[in-house]
Design a protein around this nucleic acid. Structure first.
Lengths: 115, 115
DNA sequence: CTGGATCCGATTTGATACTG
DNA sequence: CAGTATCAAATCGGATCCAG
């Protein structure tokens, strides 16, 4: 499998490419929270423990640029901004679900071994 | 979903936990190469483009500690060391396969859009 | 052949302050 | 309410050297 270049960035393999889009500490949690429908910025922030303001905004920006999330801003005062999954984002939920279930599986094994 | 603590380390969610075990740039490529059977250190190194000596050894060490890979060293001169997947490692291949196919899917979409 | 250790630059992340 | 900018801390990764 040769390298894959996009926007001047080199990806070593398909896993690398996929993880660049939905990987990192925060992208999957953000997508996962949006799976049931539209959410406002502050809602997402409250729903994800530990995430900082900076991390949430940068991750949302990247997910928007890569087409996983749609951002709709209402020009009101104070501002109101809504985020929803695009079809591409909905597709990602399938993958996240697999990884999530696998994580639960590993956690169970780990728990069992502690006794 | 509350935090999950193991070995003094805090995991925020099941995805976080799973990715700590098989995530990062190199763990999945290493496991993937081992899917067909036993390999020696240098074989793996040659099979994975770009990986450095340091990264391969540290990732193999971690995969061994977490039970994904078994290491067998033959006390010969020069040394000969063989790596194989454990059942836990074999199980991980299923997940990697899903992520890998998803990556291929995203890469196709991206290629189509470039024209 | 395989592995460990060190140094150092690059990248990522968090805390904080400021804005309309 | 939502977003941007800046700075510092932490983590990660590569190059290199030494060893059994």
């Amino acid at each position: 499998m040769p390298d894959f270049v996009e926007n001047g960035r080199v990806y070593y393999n398909p896993v690398d490419y996929a993880m660049h889009h939905i990987g990192g500490t925060w992208k999957m949690p953000v997508l996962w929270r949006l799976r049931k429908g539209v959410m406002r910025y502050t809602e997402i922030k409250k729903a994800i423990p530990h995430i900082t303001h900076k991390m949430l905004t940068t991750q949302l920006r990247e997910l928007e640029e890569t087409g996983f999330v749609q951002r709709v801003a209402y020009p009101t005062v104070p501002p109101k901004v809504e985020y929803t999954l695009t079809p591409k984002g909905v597709r990602a939920i399938d993958i996240i679900n697999v990884i999530r279930n696998y994580g639960l599986e590993l956690m169970e094994e780990a728990n069992l071994k502690e006794h």
